[in-house]
Design a binder for these strands. Structure first.
Lengths: 202, 202
DNA sequence: ACTTTTGTTAACCAAATGGTTAAACTATTT
DNA sequence: AAATAGTTTAACCATTTGGTTAACAAAAGT
């Protein structure tokens, strides 16, 4: 594996990422990925044997970008309030840089739920254990209102992730353009945390 | 158009709905829809000229199931608290009966954002106007905490819609099975409204 | 220098796929 | 009952698509 090899491989991955995230597994075409990478279609199969394997590599890379973000709120040591503030701010900032990521991951997990089971094997896969303990403790200590950790987690995830997935719907119903949407998202970096904390603070 | 005609047409629509909602436009196959409907593939083209037109019919029908649900919270006359309670309860109950609907609609809107522009022409298409006025009025009257109507709407939508779209991800991270997920969703019929109202009540 | 391995391409292939055709079958009209 | 119009099918077609092959080019090893 010389430099050129690495370049080509990364080049293919970048092109594949672009096309897969835009069109999904079913909508993507190997020819389009080859064009995007500026290479021959056969070379795709030389580096990644099949469309499925190329897709798997792209999906895995995408998921490995998201997983640490989630672990930030699940496994960090600070108080729940601080965590919510940090997480919403960091997550929204991060997704602004990678706007296709959430929809891509959610879409493909739904298309083939067995994907996520493979990811689950990975040691870095997010899990709710620590978060559950923390919420239960803080509820017991009277620091926040009674709430089930699972529901709170779903709420945090929903409020942060959905706006990016539902963007075209939100823009249509709110009758706003991309720029106004961008401003709303910018606002949400702090709004979401305040909204959640308002709801659970004693 | 006799009885049999209507039956076949509806039969095709049902089959197409099933396949399209499960596989999406790109993943669906005309042959599979024909099999599902128990008819010849050519008959699909006899009733709906192309895959695109069949898909459009299915999508439109799906959207027309969702739109009135959204209008319930946008255009109803009752207080914001009552609306949130009613909407979350009704929406979640409704989606439990049609679990593939949210993902299908969001998915296909993202694949082709021009779809939603066509839907927007429809007079029944949800819009934020009335909702905005109501929120602004209730904020001014000191009945709820200051909040931008757009953000509140996004929050309501997120908390209600996302769990269904993110189901496999939530199940994986929470390490729960379909049955436990179902219980969480059942809980959310009231939890979501309480969570929102907690956050905005004075 | 030459042999071997690795990287790249153009041309090709078989299967799948959306769509068409022409004929058969069924109901309706006259 | 004959003609007409509407419904359904089997067979077919052109194109697209993921994947392969064989030849060529470029490094790397000897």
């Amino acid at each position: 594996m010389d430099k050129k090899d690495q370049n080509t491989e990364q080049n293919i991955l970048n092109a594949a990422k672009k096309v897969f995230q835009l069109k999904g597994m079913d909508g993507a075409r190997m020819q389009e990925i080859a064009n995007e990478a500026g290479i021959n279609k056969a070379l795709l199969h030389y580096y990644f044997r099949s469309k499925q394997m190329l897709f798997d590599a792209v999906f895995k890379a995408a998921f490995e970008m998201i997983a640490p973000q989630l672990n930030e709120i699940l496994n960090d040591e600070s108080s729940i309030e601080d965590k919510i503030k940090n997480f919403t701010y960091n997550y929204i900032s991060f997704i602004i840089q990678h706007p296709y990521l959430p929809n891509f991951i959610i879409q493909e997990i739904n298309r083939n739920p067995e994907f996520i089971l493979q990811m689950k094997e990975n040691p870095g896969f997010p899990n709710l254990k620590k978060f559950k303990n923390q919420i239960n403790d803080e509820v017991k200590a009277g620091q926040i209102k009674p709430i089930k950790a699972e529901q709170l987690f779903i709420n945090i995830l929903s409020l942060n992730v959905f706006p990016f997935i539902g963007k075209p719907l939100i823009e249509a119903i709110g009758d706003i353009d991309d720029n106004q949407f961008k401003l709303l998202i910018e606002e949400r970096k702090t709004h979401v945390a305040n909204f959640i904390i308002n709801s659970i603070k004693v």
